[in-house]
């Protein structure tokens, strides 16, 4: 087998296969990254015709801004909480959906996934209405139990936006895990059962190792996605109260794009880019480079 693969090593086939995808990525994804890096050294306003080189001016401005440092802290909490919950819940629900003899699997899956069929905006608006202190259904329900109305987005802003994000986003890890679990040969489990392994042991020794590649992918994707997006926070709290939910994406929107300051926006993007690279590399190191190679 090795010989056959080696023979094709010099073949032009892989290049031809990779070329369309890589071309698209180079033009539409990699160029904007370099563009942002380049612009981060300039004072460039969206509407002003020219741009002036200011060296590290944008970076210095950012690191002197207390609100930016606060946003870094909030981002760690928001992303950490969201990723942990999405990862664990996705894993748990997926394993439950893979339980043998489960009836109504498709119905359960469809209902659990329902939130993901909505856009971020609609999800945020639904929760904005439900959490409304005066006319929200959640305060109505707790009032039935005699509780006083709560302004959730004032007293519990960060936990609430994390929960809404998890409610919407868990689908991704759930589907990834479930489809990967489908691929684990049933015979492995049967053999383990014969050997007397408990459900828990089977999960640890058979399921988890088989999910290594998918776990890495899921972790990277949900981390990046959570860092890069701020739609839910934008609608629910706009970063408040007093910066409690001001994640870096929200900070960027308020300070750069709402004010059309492209240079500053590019600088924040570049910082996010670097943070993302570091996180990705940590994940990959944790899982081991070999996770990405052929198993056989």
């Amino acid at each position: 087998m090795q010989t056959i693969l080696k023979k094709q090593k010099i073949s032009i086939v892989p290049i031809v296969l990779l070329l369309p995808a890589l071309t698209l990525l180079a033009v539409f994804s990699i160029y904007p990254v370099f563009n942002a890096f380049f612009l981060s050294f300039y004072n460039k306003q969206m509407l002003a015709p020219g741009k002036t080189f200011i060296g590290l001016g944008n970076y210095i401005h950012l690191f002197q801004d207390a609100a930016f440092m606060n946003s870094l802290k909030v981002t760690v909490l928001y992303v950490g909480g969201s990723v942990l919950l999405q990862f664990l819940m996705g894993l748990i629900i997926a394993s439950l959906l893979c339980v043998k003899d489960l009836k109504g699997r498709a119905i359960f899956r469809t209902l659990i996934i329902l939130p993901y069929t909505l856009s971020e905006l609609v999800v945020s608006l639904i929760w904005l209405r439900m959490l409304d202190p005066q006319s929200g259904v959640i305060n109505y329900i707790i009032s039935l139990f005699g509780a006083q109305p709560v302004n959730w987005l004032f007293h519990w802003a960060l936990p609430v936006v994390i929960l809404v994000n998890v409610w919407w986003g868990t689908t991704f890890s759930l589907l990834m895990f479930e489809s990967a679990m489908q691929g684990i040969p049933q015979s492995l489990y049967e053999a383990a059962e014969v050997d007397g392994a408990s459900v828990f042991q089977r999960f640890i020794y058979i399921t988890l190792p088989a999910l290594k590649y998918i776990s890495l992918l899921v972790l990277i994707m949900i981390t990046l996605y959570t860092i890069n997006s701020f739609g839910i926070i934008f609608v629910l709290t706009a970063g408040g109260p007093v910066g409690a939910t001001n994640v870096i994406g929200m900070y960027m929107w308020n300070n750069a794009f709402q004010s059309s300051d492209l240079g500053l926006g590019a600088t924040i993007s570049t910082i996010i880019f670097i943070v993302n690279i570091v996180i990705t590399l940590i994940y990959i190191r944790g899982f081991g480079m070999s996770t990405m190679e052929r198993r056989d």
């Binding site: 693969l5 892989p14 890069n228 926006g265 990405m292």
Partner: peptide, 25 residues
């Protein structure tokens, strides 16, 4: 299915293209 140098790096690189927020692009 094909062996070539820097494959793992290429895979990581492909993901890396998603590392800047959409707004910035």
């Amino acid at each position: 299915n094909f062996e070539f140098k820097g494959k793992a790096l290429l895979l990581i690189g492909i993901l890396m293209t998603q590392l800047i927020p959409g707004m910035a692009a």
